[in-house]
Simulated assay, not measured.
Amino acid sequence: MSSPTETASDLQNSWDTWHAAHEEQRASEHGFLAVTGLHFLDAEARPVDGIPGLWNAADDTVTITLSALERLSWDGRELNPDGTGSTSVLGPIEERDALYLEHGPVLIEVVRRGGFLVVRPRDPRHALRTSYPGTPAFPASEDFVVPARVEYFAESQSVTVGAVVEGIEHVYEAPARLRFELGGVEHVLTAFNGHTPGTLNVLFTDLTSGDTTYPANRSLTVTPAEDGTAVVDFNRAVNLPCAYTDFATCPLPPAGNRLPVAVEAGEKLPVQREAAA
């Protein structure tokens, strides 16, 4: 049988491996640290800093007008192939869908968030990415690995939450809630559908939020077992993109997902953060 020291060491080693992979993804060439701006589109055709063309939105489509000297490519084809100028209509773009265009090393993300069409250039040369020092975290602790009961709703509930950007609301499907004990007290958290099939995503805050951890939210992925149980490992609580930059539209946790305990586990406040000008 493993000693407590060996168990703690195994937990930390497992966490170190997992977190290194998470950090690598976060700092990837066109990851969120490469985003240079958040540009909301409307009916008026306007330039977007750092990329070619005039951009405007109508309903669920985006129109890009290029002059004779401007170049963009989408899905492997040039939008202005003969160099005489062009007008291209992209879409329809549904909520949380994305299209990607290329301009040299810059990947141009076109997304729909909270009903708004948004352009976010991703430049791998962006200083936030190239100087990224990594994210500090609490030491892994068995105290924050807790069993939970997954209580599925008869029907998934549509839950509307706010966002870190004023005026935006997000709607997510919540199939279940998690019931567990932490610090000798029972807690319940609403869980959304996860990013991969069979997983749940939990957005939460706690008594460390705004002190040692990012105030708006942290995120945790939970994988339920077939018997309706799950392990909630708060050591794997991570920051959303909004913890690093104002160029994000991250959702806020649903009502009730504020834990009245200090979850001293998972990622802490980032060392550096980019504010919009």
Score class of each variant (00 low, 15 high):
Thr36Leu: 01
Ser3Thr: 08
Pro139Ser: 02
Pro175Phe: 13
Val111Thr: 09
Asp10Gln: 14
Val171Asn: 00
Leu66Phe: 05
Ser73Phe: 08
His187Tyr: 08
Gly256Ala: 06
Ile64Cys: 04
Asn257Phe: 04
Thr5Met: 13
Trp18Glu: 05
Gly50Ser: 05
Ala191Cys: 08
Glu94Thr: 10
Glu155Gly: 08
His19Glu: 01
Gly115Asn: 03
Pro175Leu: 10
Asn56Glu: 14
Asn80Cys: 09
Glu44Met: 06
Gly194Glu: 12
Gly76Arg: 00
Glu109Cys: 10
Ile93Arg: 07
Asp211Phe: 13
Thr61Tyr: 14
Gly162Lys: 05
Val188His: 12
Gly91Lys: 08
Leu11Cys: 01
Arg122Lys: 10
Pro270Ile: 06
Pro224Arg: 10
Glu151Asp: 15
Phe204Trp: 00
Ala216Ser: 07
Trp55Asp: 00
His195Val: 15
Pro215Ala: 10
Asn13Leu: 14
Leu101Val: 06
Ala265Cys: 03
Asp227Leu: 11
Asn239His: 05
Tyr100Asn: 09
Tyr172Ile: 11
Glu95Ala: 01
Ala43Glu: 12
Gly162Asp: 01
Glu23Ser: 00
Tyr244Phe: 00
Thr229Pro: 08
Asn13Arg: 15
Ala8Asn: 03
Leu189Lys: 04
Asn13Cys: 11
His39Met: 13
Pro92Thr: 06
Pro147Ser: 01
Leu41Tyr: 07
Phe192Arg: 00
Asp42Ala: 07
Pro4Ser: 02
Val111Gly: 11
Arg258Trp: 14
Gly104Gln: 00
Ala8Gln: 04
Val89Glu: 09
Ala98Gly: 09
Arg113Leu: 08
Ala255Gln: 15
Glu226Val: 14
Pro105Asn: 07
Leu128Trp: 05
Asp227Cys: 12
Arg177Phe: 07
Glu6Phe: 06
Asn239Pro: 03
Ser2Glu: 14
Glu102Ala: 13
Asp16Leu: 06
Gln272Thr: 10
Arg122Asn: 04
Pro133Val: 11
Ala21Pro: 13
Gly183Met: 01
Arg96Thr: 10
Asp49Ser: 07
Phe247Met: 06
Ala176Tyr: 09
Arg258Gly: 14
Ala163Arg: 11
Gly83Leu: 00
Trp55Asn: 04
Ala243Asp: 02
Val222Glu: 08
Val89Ile: 14
Val145Pro: 00
Phe144Tyr: 07
Thr61Ser: 14
Ala225Phe: 15
Thr212Ser: 12
Phe116Met: 13
Ser219Ala: 13
Asp123Glu: 01
Leu101His: 03
Phe180Gly: 07
Leu99Thr: 05
Tyr172Phe: 02
Ala277Lys: 15
Gly83Tyr: 03
Asp211Asn: 14
Pro121Lys: 07
Ala216Trp: 01
Thr229Ile: 11
Ile168Asp: 02
Phe204Val: 04
Gly91Met: 02
Leu200His: 11
Ala237Cys: 02
Asn201Thr: 15
Arg125Leu: 11
Glu274Ser: 04
Gln12Phe: 11
Ala276Cys: 06
Ser86Ile: 04
Ile168Ala: 02
Ala20Gly: 11
Asp75Phe: 10
Glu169His: 05
Ala34Lys: 04
Ser9Arg: 14
Leu189Asp: 01
Phe153Trp: 12
Val146Glu: 04
Leu11Glu: 02
Ser14Met: 12
Asn201Val: 15
